[in-house]
Each structure stands twice: as C-alpha cells, then as structure tokens.
C-alpha cells in the first residue's frame, strides 16, 4: 500500500460499508425519510414558470470535466439535467444547454434526447439546443451570457463546478428576471450563488438530488448512509481537537501518514 493512504482507505471502507448496510436495510423495506430541500422542490416550479411565460430554460452544467476531483459535480449536474429535461419535455418547454467540456457534449445530448423520447415527444427535441460553446473559460461565459440575453429564459439552472463565471451567469440571469436555481460544491462560488440566485443547492445537496427524484428506496438509502460519513467526520474533528489540546499531535501525524 502507498504510504499516507492507509487512513483514507479505512475511512473509504467504513463509509462504503455504512452505505451498503443502508442499502440492505432499504431492500428489506426500511426506507429512510429524506427531508425536503427548497432548491429541489423549486425545480418543477422553475420549469412551470418558464412554461407559463412561454420562455425557454437555460441549463449550464458548469465548466468542470468528467474526471478528477471536480468530476462528481458534473455527474451530479447531468443527473439533474435529466430530470429538468424530462420536466421540460412534459410541459413542451424548450431547454437550451450550454457545454464547455467536449466529453460532456455527447452525454448531455443523449440525456436531453432520451428525456424527450421518454415523454413521447422526440419530435420536439432540437439537437441544436445542446450547444458546445467553447473550451476557453471566459469565451464559454460570454456564450452562456449571450444565450441568456438573447433567449430571455424564464428559468436558469446553474448546476455543477463553477469558478469565476458563476456570478456573471447569476447576475445576468437576475437582470433578465429568470427564476434561478444554482448548485455547486466549489466553496468560493457558493456565496455568489446564494447572493444572486433564488435557490441554491449547497455542496452535498446537489449530489443528493438524483436520489430525491428517482424515488428509488436504494438510492435514498445511500443518501442516509452519507450521514454516517458525517458522524465519522465529527468524531475525527473531536478526536483531533483533543489530541492537539493534550500535545499528542505525533499520534495524529502517524495516523495520517500511515
């Protein structure tokens, strides 16, 4: 085993074990209760609003790719895109998706196409509405802002990994009066979304949305299993604080470097 990764492995195994245990419980009929999140409930409201106004929806899955530490955010965004696209198809509302990462393009195309197909409205699917804009960060930002200004969407979804462009999108969306739902796990952008958007999915909430929509008890069980991860984190924080207080940092360092 590589040095310094033993402790991570233990946490990974324990957390995975807790999640699988909750899955087993769910399969025996013990479905956990998930509290309602305002941002999640607002998704249908946002699509409904755009429909009433006769305006499209603009969706940005962020600027992160599919790999690396930010990849999970893109996958979470694509999960939410599937639900939003299906709701848009149900209400006959146009959905425009702006893409920055080339690998995300075929996946987003397939998600939106199959969402329209699932609602029996494949003829309403316009492949030109899933658009690759640019790989360059600010060219992409200009592209999304341009689409917002021209198309005047009734609702915007800014969900995924965002960096400096987050506030640009949110402010343009705000200036055109769109109902905005945002979500990111990028710490330094969350406050911008909170300040400028109507609803914000904070960090872990964004990753849980797929389980909410699916209604699948097993997926709900996984979300409940996450709570065990947070209990581990709280325990480690308390233990670390005690060790540091009593001058036992060497023990902490030994565990971390194992």
């Amino acid at each position: 085993m590589y040095q310094g990764r033993g402790f991570i492995l233990v946490v990974f195994v324990v957390l995975s074990g807790a999640i699988f245990y909750r899955i087993r419980l769910a399969r025996t009929g013990k479905v956990p209760y998930l509290r309602k999140l305002a941002g999640v409930s607002a998704i249908e409201e946002a699509v409904g609003r755009a429909t009433e106004l006769g305006r499209p929806i603009v969706f940005s899955p962020g600027i992160a790719g599919l790999g690396g530490e930010y990849g999970a955010q893109t996958f979470a965004a694509l999960e939410i895109l599937g639900y939003v696209a299906r709701t848009a198809a149900k209400y006959d509302t146009r959905i425009i998706v702006g893409i920055r990462i080339p690998e995300v393009l075929p996946i987003a195309e397939e998600i939106v196409r199959s969402a329209f197909a699932a609602e029996g409205k494949l003829d309403r699917y316009n492949p030109d509405d899933v658009r690759f804009l640019s790989q360059a960060q600010f060219a992409y930002a200009a592209g999304v802002m341009g689409i917002m200004e021209r198309e005047r969407p009734g609702a915007t979804f800014l969900i995924g990994g965002f960096w400096a462009e987050s506030l640009m999108f949110a402010e343009v969306g705000n200036s055109i009066g769109a109902l905005q739902i945002a979500g990111t796990a990028n710490l330094h952008q969350i406050q911008f979304f909170v300040a400028a958007c109507d609803y914000t999915l904070l960090g872990e909430e964004m990753f849980a949305v797929g389980a909410y929509f699916s209604g699948d008890p097993v997926k709900k069980a996984i979300i409940a299993g996450q709570d065990f991860g947070k209990i581990i984190a709280i325990f480690l924080i308390v233990a670390g604080t005690l060790f540091a207080t009593f001058g036992l940092e060497s023990i902490v360092n030994r565990v971390i470097n194992w």
Partner: peptide, 18 residues
C-alpha cells in the same frame, strides 16, 4: 466552510459509489 467541504466530499463519494 469546513461543514460544506465535509458534506460535499461525503456526497461526492456517495455519488461515485452509486
């Protein structure tokens, strides 16, 4: 910030497992 970081890390791990 740490609350959000820990929650997001656990959420990302759970999504990865799914």
């Amino acid at each position: 910030q740490r609350g959000i970081i820990i929650g997001a890390a656990v959420g990302a791990l759970s999504l990865g497992l799914r």
